[in-house]
């Protein structure tokens, strides 16, 4: 009996030390802020890159003109390179090679790098979503006098979003978790701050468990939010 209560007390103290002294809870809050900022802007950047790349690829697949086939090849190369190399290596390369100036903002580097990385995956998701829209929709738009790009924008993409959303949500969730890698370029995100607290208290497990719990809460909340949006979109669909 005594042994069990001693153990419990020990666990309580370990978590207490990981949270309360020196206002350590603020480290989690600040780390969470950084994680969310990087995730949010990387997602936005990834979606913009992904949609542009996907539209170029779809257009290139239907055209013989070199003016669009060459950008199409470049997009293929981008996707191959990004998907074929580890995220952490990309992050280190971009941090050390491209942003070499002294006062580099590591949060910005992280955001740009995760955005570029995510864009490659989003592009393939969006491309699949566009291809799933009936080709008659493109024909109907063109027959009314819309050019290819306007038909894509007004008619095809809005319908593609519904196909894309579940896979895109998955990509968001992966991205939020992957931002933990940003700690290797000195970004004080949630993971980095948890490690820092562990180094102060000489007990790494409690802060890491706390960080894991916070990631879990974000991911579950995101999944709920996405399911809500999917249901909203499905309402307009009465086939």
């Amino acid at each position: 009996m005594n042994i069990i209560s001693e153990k419990l007390l020990g666990i309580y103290e370990a978590f207490y030390n990981a949270i309360v002294p020196e206002r350590r809870y603020m480290a989690y809050v600040n780390g969470l802020k950084v994680t969310l900022i990087i995730s949010l802007f990387a997602v936005l950047l990834g979606v913009v890159i992904g949609v542009v790349v996907a539209v170029i690829k779809v257009c290139a697949a239907h055209s013989k003109s070199p003016a669009i086939r060459i950008p199409g090849k470049l997009c293929d190369l981008y996707i191959t390179v990004i998907r074929g190399t580890p995220l952490m290596v990309q992050l280190l390369i971009i941090y050390n090679l491209i942003f070499t100036s002294r006062n580099t903002n590591p949060i910005l580097v992280g955001t740009v790098c995760f955005g570029i990385n995510s864009g490659a995956y989003v592009a393939e998701i969006v491309r699949a979503g566009i291809n799933a829209v009936d080709s008659g929709q493109m024909e109907a738009g063109r027959s009314l006098g819309f050019n290819w790009l306007k038909t894509m924008w007004y008619i095809v993409l809005p319908q593609a979003i519904k196909n894309i959303l579940p896979a895109l949500g998955n990509e968001f969730i992966v991205l939020v978790k992957e931002t933990s890698v940003a700690s290797v370029i000195a970004v004080n995100d949630l993971t980095k701050n948890a490690q820092y607290i562990g180094s102060r208290t000489w007990d790494l497990i409690p802060p890491l468990l706390i960080a894991a719990a916070i990631y879990l809460v974000i991911v579950v909340a995101l999944s709920r939010l996405l399911r809500f949006f999917e249901r909203r979109l499905a309402k307009g669909d009465r086939h």
């Binding site: 008659g136 027959s143 319908q159």
Partner: peptide, 20 residues
Amino acid sequence: INQMRRKMGMVFQQFNLFPH
């Protein structure tokens, strides 16, 4: 051709209305 198509209406076998 986009200008010319505005003066040529087309009706398809599968309707191709915009479902959204």
